[in-house]
Nucleic acid binder design. Sequence first.
DNA 1: CAGGAAATTGACGATTTTGTGACAGGTCAC
DNA 2: GTGACCTGTCACAAAATCGTCAATTTCCTG
Lengths: 234, 234
Amino acid sequence: MAANILLVEDEPAIQELIAANLGRAGHHVVRAGDAETAQRIVRDALPDLVLLDWMLPGMSGIELARRLRADERTRAIPIIMLTARGEEQDKVAGLEMGADDYITKPFSPRELVARIKAVLRRRAPQATEDPVALGGLCLDPATHRVSAGERPVALGPTEFRLLHFLMTHPERVHSRAQLLDQVWGDHVFVEERTVDVHVRRLRAALEPVGQDGLIQTVRGSGYRLSALPAVAGV
Amino acid sequence: MAANILLVEDEPAIQELIAANLGRAGHHVVRAGDAETAQRIVRDALPDLVLLDWMLPGMSGIELARRLRADERTRAIPIIMLTARGEEQDKVAGLEMGADDYITKPFSPRELVARIKAVLRRRAPQATEDPVALGGLCLDPATHRVSAGERPVALGPTEFRLLHFLMTHPERVHSRAQLLDQVWGDHVFVEERTVDVHVRRLRAALEPVGQDGLIQTVRGSGYRLSALPAVAGV
DNA sequence: CAGGAAATTGACGATTTTGTGACAGGTCAC
DNA sequence: GTGACCTGTCACAAAATCGTCAATTTCCTG
């Protein structure tokens, strides 16, 4: 059960210690020394879990937690807070704020790993699970079905994710690099041309249900999903 | 969010203190002074949550937790353990054993209440006792029977719970991890592939009564129970 | 209209995911 | 005890999907 974990901790020694232990447990760790940096990283990298020190210089851990809970995209990311012994109010405040668990320093590596595992396990199912309807197409992440009117559309996992992304970001041109980041994940190493191939497969699956022309090529830039017909001039 | 809580604690003073606080928070508290009594009460009263002191005369808290997890009917009841400071081994052992949380004595009433609230919250939508009928299948939790029309279907306990969950959450795709959480319990350590095996056994039991195709595989995501046919078109 | 960059397409081997059968333990009623 | 279930895990087979490539077509530029 490897996971991407963002560690927010201002003290280098502790940061190092925790990172080493998590790494040994098979997790991938990204570090941040303050809440502002952490917030940026969360937006970009969308980690699976945030390990958050409650006492930080500048923006406090509580404030960061509040912001993460306020943003729809980061709301579902579990947070485990690290507190010094005796900060009892914080524990309560943290749990009420939406932290999924907390650990009191000092703690043992085994305990930390056990907690992380437990939290990851019970991670809620829903994450942008709302159905999307657009231009005669309907895609439902919860049931993992795509349909054009009555007719169902069969897609492979990657095509499904690609279509989902395009449908949630329509009318906008996405470069191949952006699509790789968003659909494949920013850590994957594949040719940009691969995007072309999947776009083609997606088009092939959409064409027999009368949804051709939905995905448009913008020469030199990338692809765009649009309910409007492609413009000839530009 | 009132709840029935079983408090297992051998020391009368602490028992009194906790019970008073929980009562003030609107919970209904039943008390037990030892693990044997507690076990009997759990079987009879099926509380919503067990507050369990780890150090008990006679049967230990750990042993009681193990037994509760072993019994199908009590498996889902959340357990919060109470430990004295420094019993770090116990914390880990407890979390691995299936405790949902722990609190180190001494603790503040506010913290205790917050923890209980948190644990109860993430334990929200659970199985009902009502019979479920869906797509020619009928499952009755009360009698523990499954039938397809007139023909009965024989299932093992795990397959029964799996089918029960799928029938109460149809159409939706469930990842293996989610199924482990919901059907096995979020504290069980088993391989994800175990789900595959049980799905297979379930399919094997359903097929002779003409209910094949009910449980569908969604490649890369998980499984889904659906009366609708899986997408054929390809 | 030619040249060339960019995009499409079809094919194919590699990789990942899932289905299956077997098996060693464990539990429980007898 | 003991024998009939259940269970979780493997190793392997089968199936589906993926990424890449090379050939081809499309489209813009000059």
